[in-house]
Design a protein around this nucleic acid. Structure first.
Lengths: 192, 192
DNA sequence: GTTTTAGTATACCGTTCTGTATACTAAATA
DNA sequence: TATTTAGTATACAGAACGGTATACTAAAAC
């Protein structure tokens, strides 16, 4: 069989994404990824230099869609900026109910691959988080929130903390506390 | 050589702790732990039923000292409750400067071992987090903070979010934003 | 003084890991 | 039509994995 190369690569990446995200990166071998993609290991190594390259491609491919999803969660609300930020955290509670949800792929990759010589993972994850933080700061500023950079950082802390608590306790209701905190932190920076 | 059994067990556990915490749990083999403990693999399996048992013992052993350290960070400050909570986050910034610091061992274990059939990990981690949350709620209540249970949860979210951000960005200064958020969330619940 | 205990040393088992090699096939391309 | 391309199928190399087996040793306990 002869397929379109870009299609095959996408299928391998999709299989890697599902498995890495669900089971963890070290827990998944290249054999399992090749099998899940319906591809021989030979073909996998024809499209990727090795597992490290596949890991980097996996994270890089998640950057844009995850970022878009986060922004969409904020923008969906029709209310003011505080309601929008609240919507972000309520979206976490909703998503966490899905059994396929396993938290933030970037945070989990960094956490798992600590002290392994794969610089790409750390760099991609930091870039992703920074991108959302920067977007938040601009969005807050455009809604006349004072100290937007500081508030954006505080919201990032709440975002990852919310996700971690939900993962540990297997209880999406932690998002409600995070949402209330986020609203309070935003509202106290609004003009009177 | 014949050693005191409890001593040998402690040495194995200490080696496992160092390696698991620094490199991750899947990244460390039992051979490496035995070698680091200066013990044969035979001896290791004489003290632990297997790697899963060792993982559970590692986390269980961290519970008390980590909890004690967190409480100490809060109680060190001589100021009021807001200053105490601020001190907790400033302690994170201090510890994160140490190259041996790698975040929360419980959150990292849960994150890495997601969807592996080791119930103990999830249970121990949840119990640990819950213990600090409960202590915080009682401490806040004793300082006349309103809605202590909710505020305690919000602080837990900030704690784990702060740690995650520092890990990802390799930048302890994220603790400052978390500290400011924590102070604001506590102060607004103080009696006038 | 004999037996139990807590080890060492070493070898091995079967499996899985990342990665490579060899040979073949069918579709697109020149 | 000949050649390149993108694959399949299969096997294997070399290491690391968790875990076990055998034989021996020295200190402690009865």
């Amino acid at each position: 069989m002869r397929g379109i190369p870009a299609e095959t690569r996408k299928r391998i990446l999709a299989a890697a994404t599902d498995l890495f995200y669900a089971k963890g990166i070290r827990a998944v071998g290249v054999d399992a990824i090749a099998a899940a993609a319906g591809v021989t290991k030979r073909t996998l190594y024809l499209h990727f230099d090795g597992k490290d390259d596949l890991i980097a491609a996996y994270l890089e491919a998640r950057n844009e869609p995850v970022l878009a999803g986060l922004i969409k969660s904020v923008m969906r609300s029709s209310g003011g900026i505080a309601a929008q930020i609240e919507g972000l955290f309520l979206a976490f509670a909703r998503q966490a109910g899905n059994p396929n949800w396993h938290g933030c792929p970037f945070a989990r990759a960094v956490s798992e691959l600590r002290e392994t010589p794969n610089d790409a993972v750390s760099e991609i994850a930091a870039r992703h988080k920074r991108a959302f933080e920067d977007w938040l700061a601009e969005h807050l500023a455009s809604h006349h929130v004072a100290e937007p950079a500081l508030v954006a950082r505080q919201l990032m802390v709440l975002v990852d903390g919310c996700i971690t608590q939900i993962l540990i306790h297997r209880d999406p209701s932690y998002a409600a506390a995070a949402a209330a905190a986020a609203v309070a932190l935003v509202e106290r920076r609004l003009p009177d």
